[in-house]
C-alpha cells in the first residue's frame, strides 16, 4: 500500500474537468485508488464521488493506492496531480 498527501493548487479545486481527466488517467490500473478529504473518501475512478468530495484550492488530500500495480498507479496519480491540480 502506498499513501501520500497533496495540496491542491488549482484555483477551482477538483471541479468537473480535472475530475474527469483524473478518472481517465487512472482507469487502466487494477489498484484501488482512494482520495480522502476531511474523513470523506472517494475512489479516483468514480467521477461523481470525486466531484462530491468538494475539494477546493488549498485543501490537502490523502491518496491511498493499493493493488498489484500500485507503484505505477501511485506514480501516475502523483504525476497527474502535479500537472493538473
Amino acid at each position: 500500500m502506498k499513501t501520500f498527501a497533496y495540496t491542491i493548487k488549482d484555483e477551482l479545486g477538483i471541479h468537473a474537468r480535472p475530475a474527469g481527466l483524473m478518472v481517465k488517467a487512472v482507469k487502466g490500473f487494477s489498484s484501488e485508488i482512494t482520495i480522502a478529504k476531511n474523513g470523506k473518501t472517494a475512489s479516483a475512478k468514480k467521477l461523481m464521488a470525486l466531484m462530491g468530495l468538494g475539494v477546493k484550492c488549498g485543501d490537502e488530500i490523502q491518496i491511498t493506492v493499493e493493488g498489484a500495480d500500485e507503484d505505477q498507479a501511485a506514480a501516475a496519480v502523483q504525476e497527474f496531480l502535479a500537472a493538473n491540480l
Partner: peptide, 16 residues
C-alpha cells in the same frame, strides 16, 4: 465542449 465528455463519463460512472 469538454462538459459533454464529462457527461459521457457521468453516464458510465460506477456509483450512478
Amino acid at each position: 465542449a469538454q462538459i459533454f465528455e464529462i457527461h459521457m463519463m457521468m453516464i458510465e460512472d460506477d456509483d450512478y
